[in-house]
């Protein structure tokens, strides 16, 4: 059923409790700020308490909380999540934005490097999904959004391990969408192109000026902003996305066109 608030504004997230990981920086922070303006109450997750507090200070409305947690602690996720839900009540949405990206040329790949990339990008996403499948964790009508990457769709030299992690997120999204549909919970992924955040600044260190220019040229609309991605995430969380599940929304300024 569509509430009065969403009838007048289908993007409204009025009163919805939404957990955003990676909320201490970049896309996660911009998403949290936008969702607060749309009326949501936020649970902000990341490792840096200080940066989460900065995000908290930028939010509209009340009822938000910071929940510092290291998502590399894969085994701890279920107990942590259970505790969170017991304290805050069921979620209407979850945005998995926490992630890491490293250049790993094939001949320098190690098991340790694969593990480090997979832990937060894939294992924690999978465990969060498991938690969302638990009794009373997510309300019917709820929506999960995972931040993948165009790297999961298009190749790039030196990024194979990162690409594999994001490809896994995309695959995860599709099967989970089917599994969660009977509970009226939607699962979608957003695949951004290059977005101006700390992550892109780090990526730039690995590229020559010419390579950065070539990369920019592959984005016909230029590099994106964190807000550009946040808009797409909010669209999938709100009732605007109520008939969308199992999809991968590329938000990439035309990179994959």
């Amino acid at each position: 059923m569509i509430s009065a608030a969403t009838q007048s504004n289908p993007m409204s997230c009025d009163g919805r409790l939404i957990l955003v990981t990676g909320a201490s920086s970049g896309i996660g922070r911009a998403t949290a700020v936008l969702l607060s303006r749309l009326g949501a109450r936020l649970l902000l997750v990341g490792r840096s308490q200080e940066k989460l507090e900065q995000t908290l200070a930028a939010l509209d409305g009340t009822g938000h909380r910071i929940e510092p947690f290291d998502l590399n602690e894969t085994e701890e996720i279920p107990a942590w999540f259970k505790h969170l839900i017991a304290e805050s009540g069921p979620l209407s949405g979850l945005v998995q934005c926490a992630g890491v990206q490293h250049y790993t040329p094939a001949r320098f790949i190690t098991v340790d490097k694969i593990n480090r990339m997979m832990k937060v990008n894939v294992f924690s996403t999978t465990m969060l999904a498991k938690c969302c499948a638990g009794k009373g964790a997510v309300l019917p009508g709820g929506s999960l959004v995972f931040i993948a990457s165009v790297a999961g769709l298009v190749g790039d030299a030196g990024l194979s391990v990162y690409a594999a992690s994001k490809g896994a997120v995309i695959a995860l999204t599709k099967s989970l969408a089917l599994e969660f549909a009977p509970a009226k919970i939607r699962v979608n992924a957003v695949a951004p192109g290059c977005v101006e955040t700390d992550m892109l600044d780090k990526m730039r260190l690995n590229l020559t000026a010419d390579q950065v220019q070539a990369l920019a040229a592959k984005h016909p609309l230029g590099f994106g902003t964190a807000e550009d991605v946040a808009h797409a995430v909010a669209f999938l969380l709100a009732d605007t996305g109520r008939w969308i599940t199992g999809s991968v929304l590329t938000v990439d300024g035309g990179y994959t066109a």
């Binding site: 490293h102 250049y103 790993t104 040329p105 001949r107 320098f108 030196g158 260190l205 690995n206």
Partner: peptide, 9 residues
């Protein structure tokens, strides 16, 4: 050039 990427990390 791949060595440089590894040296950065």
């Amino acid at each position: 050039s791949m060595i440089n990427l590894e040296l950065i990390s």
